[in-house]
Nucleic acid binder design. Structure first.
Length: 577
DNA sequence: GCCGTTTTCGGCCCGACTGTTTTCAGTCG
């Protein structure tokens, strides 16, 4: 269960920060790059090491002799001496402080040297006392930004990203399901509803051997604490910091319990009201008549059916109209994974991504896609090695070459060439429109000047949308979960412009973005604005993140017809024209 | 510290933007 890749990536990121503090040239970038590679790896480094030794580690892009040694040291001892030495010299909780938007290594170091600030708590106290503004290089605004950043970090605390937790939940579910004694199992709660952030995890099982199942549960790998262990309920904490509950329920109540523990609370209250109206009583034990005779409970379908409702997909259970729709048998047919025909936003090694165009394409083929749009950054984002006019032309040739290969192999798959151009402060792009017009499509994204006032930001986006080369707006609200709020923009105006100028809004699948979010997706759908679910993958593994964008789309009531990349290649090409 | 259709050494890490130190360092993507 322990995730070596993430742990080492975290340490490398901190090393990068410590080195940046001392203005060490180039090394910070090298460590950062390696951290990104490690974090996006599918296979655990311990496996790579076991199979291929230190040589195999050095094969990883961005990892050389020195870092490979450090990885081995970590695998063998759980520590990296070099890192501990740096931390000793400057005992700052860098990971914690860097969470605050606007604070980097240099400023953090000054704060430590002048005010002795080592962590978030000390930072907040100093900012509140007004000690930061008078420092050389700081000021009123910086202090205010720091306080706002801390407040934001705090609000998000205690909740985990769906994308962080989901793989672990799947693993636990598989382990439990593999026990012969477990007859039925499901995860419930906000995970089943696919909420973007999760408080804790609930599992329900049906079993004839509860003791054995509970014993197995509390000794799962990764369990660091057992809060309680009983016949019907046990709770544990995993080393990642979140709690998991396991409940054993009788078969005749399984559906009612699943319905109850899936929530949301608001959905349950509304459902119970329907039961009361029908002179029935709904609880986690079942649906009962006034005479306490059980009439449903074995599965969810029969519970909803007995209430004369259609079964409601968990993603919709937020009491946002799904109850009424289920009563009228008018629930939407939510978009499904198998309806996704391709991905229109991913990055190749041309702009610093982890894999070549060929490798990305092969992965897309293995996912069953008909097409993949390569959309590398344009020149402004040089750190990501953004492409200029000539490079785009060169990339075009490369893509045509690869497409030829697929064609010769008689494969029903095509690469498209797009790009992710930057919408600058004035609403223009960072690259000539004439170069953009040569591509199959253009994605526009905001990556700078995020703190503009609402009116200016709205005008900036609409100006970009009016540009006929623009087809898709990437991550339209700009939030980073647990880190940064959305930028200020008049969303209704954006929707009107999207409709008028036929611009597609992206549903970005990255677990830290999920942008548009569920609420905005629902409004966009109601306004008749089309969307595209994209991964924004920077490596081939990240193409698998599509499921998280899909969940968000489903939470926003999106159907196949609302999603651009549910179109087959022919229709898509027409739509992109 | 990594990497090599410029290379085993000498490049790499750019541009927009912000806030603040009135000319530029730090941050972000």
């Amino acid at each position: 269960m322990k995730n070596n890749n993430k742990e080492i990536a975290k340490i490398f990121n901190e090393i990068s920060g410590f080195l940046a503090m001392d203005k060490v040239p180039f090394k910070p970038f090298a460590y950062e790059k390696a951290a990104v590679v490690l974090a996006s790896l599918n296979e655990d480094v311990s496996q790579i090491y076991q199979q291929g030794g230190i040589k195999a580690l050095e094969e990883l892009p961005g990892v050389g002799e020195s870092m490979a040694k450090k990885i081995v040291e970590y695998l063998k001892t759980g520590k990296i001496k070099y890192y501990q030495g740096l931390k000793k010299m400057t005992p700052i909780n860098l990971a914690e402080i860097s969470e605050v938007e606007g604070l980097g290594p240099k400023k953090t170091k000054i704060l430590y040297e002048k005010l002795g600030i080592r962590n978030l708590k000390e930072l907040e106290s100093a900012a509140k006392k007004g000690k930061i503004a008078p420092l050389f290089g700081f000021g009123e605004k910086t202090e205010k930004n720091i306080l706002e950043g801390i407040a934001f970090t705090k609000r998000a605390k205690g909740r985990f990203l769906l994308g962080e937790i989901f793989p672990m939940v799947r693993e636990i579910e598989e382990r439990l399901a593999s026990l012969g004694e477990v007859e039925k199992i499901s995860v419930a709660g906000s995970i089943r509803r696919k909420k973007e952030t999760i408080g804790d995890v609930d599992f329900l099982v049906v079993t004839k051997a509860p003791e054995k199942v509970m014993d197995f549960f509390v000794s799962l790998p990764g369990v660091v604490k057992v809060w309680g262990k009983g016949k019907t309920k046990s709770s544990v904490r995993l080393e990642e910091g979140f709690d998991v509950d396991l409940r054993v329920v009788p078969p005749k109540s399984y559906g009612a319990a699943l319905q109850y523990f899936t929530g949301s609370k608001e959905h349950n209250i509304a459902t119970r009201k329907i039961a009361i109206f029908k002179n029935l009583k709904l609880s986690e034990y079942g649906l009962f008549t006034k005479g306490n005779k059980i009439i449903a409970g074995r599965n969810e379908e029969e519970v909803y059916q007995a209430l004369e409702m259609d079964w409601i997909p968990p993603e919709l259970r937020e009491n946002q109209g799904e109850i009424e729709a289920a009563l009228k048998h008018q629930l939407p047919h939510l978009v499904e994974q198998k309806e996704i025909k391709g991905d229109l936003h991913c990055h190749s090694d041309w702009d610093g991504g982890g894999n070549t165009i060929s490798e990305m394409a092969e992965k897309a083929v293995s996912l069953g896609y008909q097409y993949l749009g390569i959309s590398d950054h344009t020149k402004f984002l040089r750190i990501e090695n953004g492409l200029g006019e000539e490079e785009l032309a060169g990339q075009r040739k490369e893509i045509e070459k690869i497409n030829k290969r697929f064609q010769d192999a008689n494969l029903d798959f095509q690469l498209l060439q797009g790009c992710e151009a930057n919408i600058l402060k004035d609403g223009s792009f960072d690259i000539k429109d004439s170069a953009l017009a040569k591509l199959d499509y253009v994605i526009g994204g905001i990556h700078s000047s995020l703190k503009m006032a609402q009116k200016e930001m709205t005008e900036r986006m609409i100006k970009a949308m009016k540009n006929p080369v623009l087809k898709i707006i990437s991550h339209p609200s700009g939030r980073i979960l647990k880190k940064r709020d959305e930028y200020e923009v008049d969303f209704e105006k954006i929707l009107r412009a999207a409709k008028e100028f036929k611009v597609i809004l992206e549903i970005n699948s990255s677990p830290v973005r999920l942008d548009l979010n569920d609420k905005k997706i629902k409004i966009a759908k109601e306004r008749g604005v089309k969307m595209a679910i994209n991964t924004d993958a920077h490596s081939r593994e990240q193409l698998e993140l599509m499921e998280f964008g899909l969940y968000q789309a489903r939470r926003g009531w999106a159907e196949k017809k609302d999603i651009l990349n549910c179109e087959g290649i022919k229709d898509l090409r027409k739509s992109l024209k």
